[in-house]
Computed example of a mutant assay.
Amino acid sequence: MMRPVLAALLLVPSVASAWGPQGHRLVARLAWTELDPAARAQVRQLLAGESDPTLHGIANWADQLREHDPDLGRRSTKWHYVNIGEHDCSYDTARDCPQDDCVVEAIRQQTGILADTSRPAAERRQALKFVVHFVGDVHQPLHAGHAHDKGGNTFQVNLDGDGSNLHRLWDSGLLNTAGLDDDAWMSRLQDMPLAVSAGEGPAAWAEASCRVVLEPGFYPAGPRIDGDYVTTWLPVAQAQLRRGGSHLAEVLNQALGAQADDPQG
């Protein structure tokens, strides 16, 4: 007898984003709690006028470009991932990111735009939106996985007759099994002890995410999965979200922390 919660997770819609909308919001909310006062002030200034002028409010913007700005959506498609699973998770810019067209270099380039106060505010605002989303992306293991199965998109999983794929499962299915809203997830994630090494950067984050993909059991032995998979891998997904939040805060503090004076925090 298959478990209803697992059958439900395989019915979630396919999304392009790592973690799905909820996961990206959580990474952004976690980052906000670790921002320096000056960085917070810059974020508020850059996002003034947005319909939801918060980090989590713009966290999924990069995945909505296909609807609102199809040209930019097409140009930025490859910025969401990098394939290094076939190379033992070792990142090489020339080999893995030609034309700087991958998530590692996208984070670096967009962070540079964000930090450049000589650029127009609109450019820096767009860069902020990209950075928030891409740092979330690079912490979803399958956004740094294998090219041969398109980051798990062609690896089929099946539960009680319901088909899905491994990428979708990691985007949102694992999180959905907990049945938590954003506030409940925040409480859980903030209670997690986590040591984050400072100064590693997006290449190291991608390599660490890729190593999760290579762990025994990450790919099920066959298409049929059960509750044991969720029990094993949901804690790993949680840890990746938590790391993503801290790493995003690190990026934003470095890019924005020295650019404003905000005594109110």
Rank of each mutant, 00 (worst) to 15 (best):
49 G>A: 09
53 P>E: 02
260 A>I: 09
108 R>W: 11
188 R>C: 05
262 D>K: 12
263 P>D: 06
184 A>C: 08
128 L>Y: 01
246 S>R: 13
97 C>M: 03
69 D>G: 07
201 G>A: 12
51 S>G: 06
115 A>Q: 12
95 R>M: 08
61 W>N: 01
35 L>Q: 01
34 E>K: 10
8 A>L: 02
166 L>F: 14
94 A>F: 01
12 V>T: 14
131 V>G: 00
164 S>D: 08
240 Q>N: 10
118 S>W: 00
29 R>E: 01
255 A>L: 10
185 W>L: 11
196 V>T: 09
125 R>Q: 06
80 H>Y: 07
96 D>H: 14
30 L>W: 01
17 S>K: 15
15 V>N: 14
179 G>T: 05
193 P>H: 06
182 D>Y: 09
72 L>Q: 06
79 W>A: 11
83 N>C: 10
149 D>M: 11
82 V>K: 03
90 S>N: 10
9 L>P: 03
51 S>K: 15
7 A>I: 15
259 Q>T: 07
151 G>N: 10
104 V>K: 07
143 H>M: 05
6 L>Y: 08
59 A>I: 06
74 R>Y: 15
39 A>M: 03
156 Q>F: 08
191 D>L: 13
88 D>R: 12
225 I>F: 00
124 R>C: 02
15 V>G: 04
17 S>I: 11
44 R>C: 03
136 G>S: 04
70 P>T: 04
147 A>H: 09
205 W>N: 11
59 A>L: 05
265 G>V: 08
134 F>V: 01
71 D>S: 13
206 A>H: 02
157 V>G: 00
154 T>C: 07
86 E>H: 08
229 Y>G: 01
6 L>T: 03
70 P>I: 03
179 G>R: 12
25 R>C: 04
164 S>F: 14
140 Q>V: 01
244 G>Y: 02
240 Q>E: 13
204 A>P: 00
40 R>D: 00
160 D>G: 10
11 L>N: 13
12 V>M: 15
163 G>K: 15
13 P>G: 12
258 A>M: 07
167 H>Y: 03
121 A>K: 06
10 L>W: 04
69 D>I: 07
108 R>N: 08
207 E>L: 05
89 C>D: 07
150 K>M: 14
103 V>C: 10
170 W>K: 09
132 V>F: 00
243 R>Y: 04
198 A>Y: 00
103 V>D: 01
230 V>M: 12
15 V>W: 05
188 R>T: 14
69 D>S: 14
137 D>F: 01
162 D>N: 11
169 L>S: 01
173 G>T: 09
172 S>Y: 12
121 A>H: 05
28 A>P: 03
211 R>K: 13
39 A>Q: 02
51 S>V: 14
222 G>Q: 15
10 L>I: 04
128 L>Q: 04
126 Q>P: 00
205 W>G: 14
63 D>S: 04
221 A>T: 13
194 L>A: 15
103 V>N: 05
64 Q>T: 11
184 A>I: 11
113 I>L: 13
108 R>A: 06
128 L>M: 07
59 A>W: 10
18 A>S: 14
47 L>K: 07
12 V>F: 15
135 V>C: 01
133 H>D: 02
208 A>R: 09
159 L>I: 15
